[in-house]
Simulated scan of single mutants.
Amino acid sequence: MTLAKPSLGLLRSLTDEHVLNELVAADRLTRAELSARTGISKPTIAESVRRLTDEGLLRDTGERSTGRGRAGSYFALADGLGSALAVEVTAAAIVAERIEVSGETVGRAVEEVPADPEPAAVAAALARAAERAIGTTGPARLAAVSAADPVDRGTGRLVELPDSPFLVGELDPPTVLAPYVSGRVTVDNDVHWAARAELEGGAPADFVYLYLGAGLGGAIVSDGAVRRGGAGIAGEVSHVITAGPDGRAMPFTEVFERLALHRPGSSAIDVPELLRRLAGAGAGAEPAASADAVVAAVCGVLVTIISLTDPEVIIVGGPWGTDERLLGPVVERLNGQPRRAAVRAATAAADTPLTAVRAFALTALRREVLARP
């Protein structure tokens, strides 16, 4: 069997992609340096550089190499190839960053989110942050958004679920950002972004990320991808049935209500009080009972997760989820279960969702540039 030879057009396209990739990674390179980095002959590289310059993707910087041998012109990515917008929406603030193909953050804006926010107020804050981050450069080519609420997979709108502590109403990021973004707006919840960061950081291809903070969340990673489910809310654990303080079955979120661990007038968990009870578990009956009930409830959720998803590891994040006074007893209880998985604390930093969004936006932007018109 004789294999067909690749066409001249395909070979040129591959060469151009190599050249663009090298110049994404470096500020400037000569044709000789491009040839040395790619292993492609100097004449072929020279033709590719000419072609890409004519297309407006490269520019001659006007600088010349020095030293022994023939001087060469330095080439760089052309100006105006576009930027990406990375956005994080939390209960406290909205952060928007404009990122160029080089990876440099060239614009940043922070807008506070008012307490007990109305949807219109959050939408206005999101628009202001995007406008300030974009500046006078014109719309970004694409955007990626992290939101501290469930997100509808089809529309990118925030989903209203019972007992969601950070609900900001029917916020529609793609619509709000439309004046500032010419292309696709990708929206997902913050726990899914955190799980992607753990995956990039070396987590196995099959794990579950459980977030335990003022809010409760989860993400299912299977075969190296976050599984969002039909509506985009796969992994939401607030209403998973688990053991309550009196041993009766109840939704996970209701456990904290029964233990008086909700903030006044809110379904958000009172994290400082929960940590106080974990710390005082050995010093009194009331903290010990609360701590034991929380451990039992978390274990019940994990047993369900393990039974349904068969993860290699459970990664627990969040301000009280990573506390060893919780994790130690949870692991001990799980060891007595017929089916179990390894459990460890999350390793990524507190700003993990924004970091993951930034990386996603940059990768997508570079892919667009490298694809060319």
Rank of each mutant, 00 (worst) to 15 (best):
A26Q: 12
A133G: 02
T30R: 04
A46S: 15
A144R: 00
V24E: 07
T105N: 09
A26Y: 05
E104W: 03
D54R: 15
S73H: 14
A143P: 01
G72A: 14
S102D: 14
E47L: 13
P150Q: 03
L158Q: 08
D152W: 07
G138Q: 10
A96T: 02
G62V: 12
P114Q: 11
E111R: 12
G154K: 09
R37L: 11
G72E: 15
A143T: 05
P114R: 11
E47D: 14
A143M: 06
A129L: 01
G107K: 08
D152M: 00
G69W: 10
A125S: 14
V151D: 03
E63Y: 04
V24R: 11
S83L: 05
P139G: 12
T90K: 05
L167T: 04
V110A: 03
V113G: 04
V87K: 07
T61Y: 09
G154D: 14
E33C: 00
T44W: 04
I94W: 09
A25P: 02
A125P: 04
E131A: 15
G72C: 04
A46I: 08
V151Q: 10
V151Y: 03
L34R: 01
V110S: 00
A140D: 08
A148F: 08
R157W: 08
G154E: 15
A91W: 00
R50K: 15
L81M: 07
R50Q: 13
E88V: 04
R98G: 06
A143E: 05
S65A: 14
G69Q: 07
E97I: 03
S35V: 08
V24Q: 01
D149H: 06
E63V: 04
P43V: 10
R98V: 08
F166N: 14
T90Q: 09
S146I: 02
T61F: 07
D27S: 15
G107F: 06
R98M: 03
G80E: 10
T30M: 00
E112P: 01
R59P: 00
T53W: 03
L58M: 06
L158P: 13
V110C: 02
R157N: 13
G82W: 03
E33K: 09
E170C: 00
G107L: 10
R68P: 02
T66Q: 14
E100R: 12
F166V: 01
L81P: 06
P139N: 10
G67F: 07
D163W: 05
T136D: 14
T30D: 00
A123G: 09
E55R: 15
E47F: 11
G82T: 06
D79W: 01
T66K: 12
I94N: 10
E33Y: 00
G103E: 13
P165R: 04
S48H: 06
V95M: 09
A124K: 09
T66W: 07
D60N: 14
T38L: 05
F75Q: 06
A109I: 03
L167I: 01
L85A: 06
R59K: 11
E104H: 13
I45F: 01
V145D: 11
G72D: 11
G135Q: 02
T90M: 04
K42Q: 14
P117Y: 14
A124E: 15
T30W: 05
A32Y: 08
